[in-house]
Nucleic acid binder design. Structure first.
Length: 803
RNA sequence: GCUUCCAUGGCGGAAUUGGUAGACGCGGCAGACUCAAAAUCUGCUUCUAGCGAUAGAGUUCCGGUUCAAGUCCGGAUGGGAGCACCA
């Protein structure tokens, strides 16, 4: 085994010394940018899951370089964030030191696996040279009115002691620690991401993302089309509601407004049951989102007495309720309730004994409401809806919307679930937000020339219960002067979320050492965009969405060449433990890549991870199967003994060789990594059956396997006396030689295989038919029967239909 | 509940996109080499019947389209993922 490690290290040193994988910006070769998500350098080290996607993209990168592309395959580290900070608190080290050490370990591990990264472009998001530009870009957001400070109820994680974005608190649970999130009113920096909803939706058309990735984003953006209707209050005043079902508007029997919204505050002076209403508002505020979902099997709420609202279409006066299922920050914070055709409204009406008016003739609703997708699909007609009676729901939907617009009662609008991006974190280990508060001048941006705003070196970085960042305690750092008036002022003490640095790192890789700009337009135009980006499915609604938003903004202010800078996005499946469970320390099913490299070699691990299954699906670890891959590489080594002195290729292997080149090329570019390996196993088996093979035969196999197993193939290639594979060209196949001259095909009778015949490429349909009829077993099955027709699919199959 | 993906031997998975289902690998069984073990090599390995040629069944289940369905269409069941009182 030591022999293998020696060989692997030898070639790793060779690549490093010869700068084999450094990409030259501006080279005349066709540029191609392959990206894998840069890792968070945790203390646990590299995971076998990293190895899977890095190897897959590495094999693509290595093949394409040999094909003459100028491949950019960079690597860096996303090192801001809570884990490093927590580890630092525990061990009383500065997070900077923790991160530096972890990065060293990760780098060493990656090098031991032979990934062909361009290490000259490496950086960490925590490098001041890098986060200077993250801060600079934040200032651009601010200067273009895209960043603002607002006091809103936000997701607060009591364990991590920080605010979380909606994306990080999906389901009311902290994404990092799993704690239940609380709602707290806090003043936060926000980025106006919601205003990009439509652009982010439309932009997907200019990408080649995998369907499941697109769908994930579409889902999260959550567009719904409907009508906003203005509702007058009896005795003056009004509010608006948003509905996606305007066709049911005649069925309104009450309205429900959000207890956490602004509307109820405005109405308060006119409310007759103030105490009751205020009590309900207080109770709601105490509940987290999760509680709201779980505790309300029944629908809680109180009537807002003294307030009656008017349905504009028929003048009907109905009561107004408070209900915590209505959210203050979605739509208008108020809804019309049509209990006959909405399950939630129905339950609320039952709970509070409210009137139910059926407006769509869809049969009995005494058990439950019949909802939109049912009545629309069935073409049911309207009733109790004045002049719209008798129209189908589909038709009425448009006609009623038209009417609302014509009469000025409302307008068609789109609503989105996606909110603005909560951009403040009350933690130490993040990019400081480069804003200064002055009593006289308010919030002021730092001067760009003063960036980077460095994190101070201090002894304490524990988060605080008060909801203030630990930076707030460092008065030397906090106290500064106002960039506008020069008077005394205080720095913002919150830091950015760790999604900030990763939102544009792929741009920096195009021009990583630029001191004047985050990346030059020339460099970005040369590399054009990320051609192929691999990452986890869990980043679809977060990192990838943030990154697209960030890039679209930069595009709109003229700083990047495309609105979408990422073309293809794919995601790999997880590697599970051998027990089919997610790998975790507590389950004891974690495989450490270092152990595998030491025992079997990096090439074996790489081949195994490519061979283990469908790249896009989860796959369980299996050490026996890994050993099988070691055996395969041993066979490759043994094949060297079969090499003879003859020139050129062996004639009888020609078709298989051409076919294999074609398949390896196609599969490598279509994520069929497992079948790349199996086709090479087939080729190796064919070689093994020969008495001897030529040097060229052998070198072909080594070259095709090289992208996946780069070390051992280089070594064997060198032993044959050839120049290194990584400096050679990829073999070309001849399409004509991928087809056998002679082939066995099946003959079916009535769709059942009854025999096989041998055909040649020259055989015409008539000849094939005759051969099929002469087949002994086929004759038995057609004897005495009437032949209805004979279907001949050239090169594939013959089917004889008989009666 | 909504959205979405998936279902093939003992296991991981192939199937040129409608054309011989089970490639390749793992595991298992039998054999060779060996004093023995490891390694390696050879053969078999979807199920049923048969010594065998062969025949029948078979890609979760039911139905349809087609000369031909793992693949396309409709329905059911089971499982994964995402969102979840979003009006």
């Amino acid at each position: 085994m030591n022999e293998i490690l020696k060989i692997e290290q030898k070639w790793q040193k060779y690549w490093e010394k010869h700068k084999t994988f450094e990409a030259k910006t501006g080279s005349k070769k066709t540029p191609y940018y392959i990206l894998v998500e840069f890792p968070y350098p945790s203390g646990a080290g590299l995971h076998v899951g990293h190895v899977r996607s890095y190897t897959a993209q590495d094999s693509l990168a290595r093949m394409m370089r040999m094909q003459g592309y100028n491949v950019l395959y960079p690597m860096g580290f996303d090192a801001f964030g809570a884990p490093a900070e927590e580890y630092a608190i525990k061990t009383h080290q500065h997070p900077k030191i923790v991160v530096e050490n972890n990065i060293k370990v990760f780098g060493k591990q990656m090098k031991s696996l032979g990934f062909s990264f361009d290490w000259s472009r490496q950086f960490s998001t925590t490098d001041p040279d890098y986060y200077k530009w993250t801060q600079w870009q934040f200032l651009q957001f601010y200067k273009h009115g895209m960043a603002y400070k607002d006091t809103i109820p936000v997701n607060w994680c009591p364990n991590c002691k920080t605010v979380l974005s909606n994306e990080d608190a999906a389901g009311g649970v902290c994404e990092r620690c799993g704690s239940q999130v609380e709602q707290r009113e806090k003043s936060q920096w926000m980025l106006k991401m919601a205003s990009y909803s439509e652009d982010l939706l439309n932009g997907l058309e200019d990408t080649n993302f995998a369907d499941r990735v697109k769908l994930g984003q579409i889902n999260w953006i959550g567009k719904s089309t409907g009508v906003e209707v203005d509702i007058d209050i009896v005795g003056g005043g009004n509010f608006s509601i948003f509905t996606t079902c305007p066709e049911t508007i005649y069925g309104i029997t009450f309205f429900v407004i959000a207890p956490d919204g602004k509307l109820i505050k405005e109405l308060m002076p006119r409310v007759e049951n103030k105490e009751e209403v205020e009590e309900y508002i207080k109770e709601t505020a105490k509940k987290s989102n999760m509680d709201r979902t779980e505790l309300n099997k029944g629908k809680s709420g109180v009537e807002v007495k003294g307030i009656k609202a008017i349905n504009p279409v028929n003048g009907k006066e109905v009561p107004v309720f408070l209900g915590d299922f209505v959210l203050g920050d979605y739509g208008t914070g108020a809804v019309m309730a049509v209990p006959s055709h909405d399950q939630r409204d129905y339950e609320y009406a039952k709970e509070h004994n409210l009137e139910i008016i059926q407006v769509i003739d869809c049969g009995d609703i005494s058990e439950h409401a019949i909802e939109k997708h049912d009545y629309m699909g069935h073409g049911y007609k309207l009733i109790n809806s004045e002049e719209f009676d008798g129209m189908t729901a589909d038709e009425a939907r448009e006609k009623i919307s038209d009417m609302l617009e014509e009469k000025g009662y409302g307008r068609r609008v789109n609503n989105y679930k996606m909110r603005d991006w909560i951009f403040s974190r009350q933690r130490f280990w993040g990019e400081p937000i480069p804003m200064i508060y002055c009593e006289k001048c308010g919030w002021q941006p730092m001067k760009e020339e003063d960036l980077p705003l460095l994190l101070p070196d201090v002894a304490e970085y524990e988060p605080t219960d008060t909801g203030e960042s630990p930076l707030a305690k460092i008065t030397d750092w906090v106290n500064t002067t106002c960039p506008h008036c020069g008077g005394p002022a205080r720095r913002e003490t919150d830091t950015m979320p760790n999604w900030a640095g990763s939102s544009w790192y792929f741009l920096r890789f195009m021009d990583p050492h630029n001191e004047k700009e985050f990346a030059s337009m020339d460099a970005m135009k040369y590399w054009n965009r990320v051609d192929w980006y691999n990452g986890g499915m869990e980043h679809t609604a977060r990192h990838l969405l943030y990154a697209r938003f960030w890039v679209q903004f930069l595009y709109n202010i003229g700083l990047v060449p495309h609105k979408e800078m990422i073309w293809t996005r794919v995601s790999h499946g997880m590697i599970l433990g051998s027990d089919n469970q997610k790998m975790s320390k507590s389950k004891g099913n974690v495989i450490n890549p270092d152990d595998i490299v030491n025992e079997y070699g990096a090439d074996t691990l790489r081949v195994y991870e490519m061979f283990m299954g469908d790249y896009q699906m989860d796959a369980p670890w299996n050490t026996d199967s890994l050993r099988g891959c070691r055996r395969f590489l041993d066979k490759i080594i043994r094949l060297k003994d079969k090499v003879n002195e003859k020139e050129g290729f062996t004639q009888s292997l020609e078709v298989l060789q051409n076919k294999t080149i074609k398949k390896v090329e196609y599969d490598t570019t279509h994520m069929g990594y497992n079948t790349v390996i199996s086709s090479l196993m087939i080729l190796a088996n064919a070689y093994d059956e020969m008495d001897s093979i030529t040097k060229e035969d052998y070198r072909l196999l080594l070259t095709l396997l090289n992208p996946t197993a780069p070390h051992i193939t280089e070594e064997l290639n060198e032993q044959l006396g050839f120049k290194p594979i990584c400096e050679s060209e990829w073999p070309k196949y001849d399409e004509e030689k991928t087809v056998e001259n002679v082939k066995d095909i099946a003959v079916q009778v009535n769709g059942k295989v009854r025999g096989t015949i041998q055909i040649t490429v020259d055989d015409n349909e008539q000849v094939i038919k005759e051969k099929a009829m002469e087949c002994e077993n086929v004759m038995k099955h057609i004897e005495g029967k009437e032949i209805v027709k004979v279907i001949v699919i050239k090169g594939k199959i013959v089917n004889i239909v008989v009666k």
